[in-house]
Amino acid sequence: MPQIGRNERVRVSLTLDGKKVSGLAEPRMLLSDFLRQQLSAGAVHVGCEHGVCGACTIRVDGRAVRSCLMFAVQAQGCDIETAAGLAGEDGELDALQKAFRKNHALQCGYCTPGILMSVTSFLDSNPDAGEDELKDMLGGHLCRCTGYVGIMRAVLEYAAARRA
């Protein structure tokens, strides 16, 4: 494990939504802050900074991770995916985003990017997950606006469409 001095800034290089990028980070810098402040990753939303709300969830090498609970330097060389990478180059929403729109699964939209990343990560590894398992997964996210009704409908619809 590399040793980094307390006030030393190191270059962290990673892949962000398919593009190779890098920035400077002190060892203590949170990955969420690094992505937002150094790499302008606006789809990373910071809601609690203690790993409860789930708004800052991203995918690190395919796995859903709360970016506020990781240091930037731990992401060296990782493949980072945020919700900004879901839509196509032309801005067309992907199937999950479309399901969210159709089912009114968001209001203020602050919790949404984190939920989208959890859902895609979870269904990639659990394609046959049923309602209870999906509910357990969504239990890791707080939404203060919607009462979760639209979110659950959207996720069920998307999961079914993926299986079809």
């Binding site: 606006g42 919700a83 900004a84 985003q97 968001l106 939209g109």
Partner: peptide, 12 residues
């Protein structure tokens, strides 16, 4: 909003 374009106050 769903396309995750950054337009909250902290993103401006």
């Amino acid at each position: 909003m769903l396309s995750a374009s950054a337009r909250f106050t902290d993103d401006m």
